[in-house]
Design a protein around this nucleic acid. Structure first.
Lengths: 344, 344
DNA sequence: TTGAAAGCGTTACCAG
DNA sequence: CTGGTAACGCTTTCAA
């Protein structure tokens, strides 16, 4: 910056002003500075600027994973809305471990971001207190926590599970099972089904399952039909194996709600292998409306989630809050849509 | 940091040492400092540290998009390998515009990252010179550019196109078409098929198409069969429409190589709609080995790419270079695999 | 409209 | 093993 100042015959602060508030500098001076900047290929150091101005123009996002159709579009939407507002995105992946999340919250905060986005509603107490103490806006996405740290954008996973179960009931099904999610709490054990494409944390899957169970109770459909210990492997494989196990226990099952489209894909495959007519003998519903859901005569009935919009809104809320604007809906429910296709 | 120092009865530099090089501080002192850090909930400011040490522990990644099964796992792999090495990821999305990329290169460099990863092989001259002038390691991923800026990790898209075309030939096909990629250069116009899920830039699609054309020539299979102006819309839709158009022009086509699995999915759907037997009457091959490729009796024959490994390797190369280790293979070909399933 | 001085929170360098 | 001092590159605040 000093080089630029020297070349333009001004002081460094004038260079700074040309870059940040050009209208406050006389046109002639500005032109000289701009020329010098170009000439020297000067790229300002935002880190130094942040240190001085106490504004980093950085937003951190902590997601469990990017693989597997779930959060990628949310991050994409977030990155885009931040870019348009001149902010940058610091990304961390927690791999579904809240211990890792806690560590990442610390490293993220050490960059002094102007805000932070989390794709998880449950945090360690240490993480929560760091977040609260950071004094920056926090947005939790993809669910609507009962006890949000600050703001939230998402939808009710429980309502989604309930709604789909009721949809299955409305189409005449009475013996409805649940596949591919909701590992028992306290079960411990390894990370949730890796690779899969649908894993989005036990927590949310459990919420959808709770909605399923609530609907069963409301509708008087008897006890839940869930295989106790989900298989390992990818979500697709798990959907297949869970369905097999489920039919083992309850052969008369006439519908299953799968915790993700990937699991539903596996379940549909398994049903076809067994010669079970879908949906005539067995209705299958998914969750997520992944790319493949509408294709191939598969026509998967599923729940569609506005993933990209969630990210974009999170960015907007964060920046609004930062610039002091009041955020009218700090807990924003973007809802979900039941997409009725062929399988249910 | 001063507060911590005061609380522990030491100087700030000792606090710094406890945090960065604990072994250089006497155990007793260290314990006092650690206690004070915990007590006060002190989180060091890495930005300030970076300014002082000229080491940001930040790596920037510029990808075209995260949506759509292509780069998500690469970014995931990168984030993970960086995290394990104590570095953080700064993410930007270019939305397939090299003008946006140029702007993002500038903003990324303004954070003084220790390295930068790009999912594109073509950059504006301005971008190239900024990258070269930054004096940091650069890794281009997902292709092996002829004229790399610095290092590269990926595979040959052209070879992949050639290999799959030869595979189709080896299975007896002689009238082979190409679907779903390779918009004509210089055509201008809007961004490449959005949403799709398979779009990974015109450039790489074009390379695969070039490989397809090379194979046709080598094998004496006549002129390429490509519809001149690809349809808009999602990649899946585009695959369907392109196939329809292709069969319009060359009704006797007996195989198509689709530039992505999404396009192949659309093509398979279209073929089924038309009652065309796959693969008996028409073989269909994809690219990418997306999650759905192996399922549903679809059994899509495709090309599998080690996306996650590409990201992980990119991180490793970057950090190796940074720490002065020699990088034995600055242009790393991770190859591809032809996955033969049912459709071809 | 422009500039000088004083930091921002940390680490490098050199002493002790 | 520990500390003082001087940066790092920028912006804020106050003057001119």
């Amino acid at each position: 910056m000093q080089d630029v100042a020297r070349a333009a015959g001004v002081s460094t602060i004038t260079v700074s002003r040309v870059l940040r508030t050009p209208e406050k500098v006389k046109a002639a001076t500005r032109a000289r500075v701009v020329a010098a900047v170009r000439e020297l290929g000067y790229v300002p150091d935002q880190g130094a600027g942040a240190l001085s101005s106490r504004e980093s123009r950085l937003v951190a996002a902590l997601v469990s994973t990017l693989s597997g159709s779930i959060f990628a579009s949310t991050v994409d939407g977030l990155a885009q809305s931040l870019r348009e507002a001149g902010h940058q995105l610091l990304l961390g992946t927690t791999e579904y471990s809240s211990a890792t999340e806690e560590a990442l919250v610390a490293t993220a905060l050490s960059r002094r971001p102007d805000g932070i986005v989390l794709t998880s509603g449950d945090h360690t107490t240490a993480a929560r207190s760091m977040l609260a103490g950071a004094g920056i806006p926090v947005v939790e996405v993809w669910e609507l926590p009962e006890d949000p740290v600050d703001m939230a954008v998402g939808f009710s996973n429980q309502e989604a599970g309930r709604a789909m179960t009721r949809h299955l009931h409305a189409t005449g099904r009475r013996r409805i099972g649940f596949v591919g999610g909701g590992r028992q709490a306290g079960r411990g054990g390894g990370r949730p089904a890796a690779g899969g494409g649908a894993a989005d944390g036990d927590r949310r899957g459990r919420l959808r399952r709770r909605g399923y169970e609530a609907a069963l109770a409301e509708l008087g459909l008897g006890a839940p039909r869930v295989v106790p210990e989900p298989a390992d492997g990818s979500m697709v494989e798990r959907g297949a194996r869970d369905l097999a196990a489920l039919l083992e226990c309850w052969p008369d099952t006439d519908a299953v709600f799968c915790s993700s489209d990937s699991a539903a894909l596996g379940a549909v495959s398994e049903a076809r292998r067994r010669g079970i007519a879908v949906p005539d003998r067995l209705a299958i519903a998914g969750f997520g409306d992944f790319e493949f859901a509408g294709e191939l005569g598969l026509g998967l009935t599923t729940v569609s989630i506005p993933g990209r919009a969630i990210g974009a809104e999170a960015g907007r809320m964060l920046l609004a809050r930062k610039s002091g604007e009041p955020v009218e809906t700090p807990i924003l429910d973007l809802g979900f849509t039941i997409v009725r296709r062929a399988t249910a």
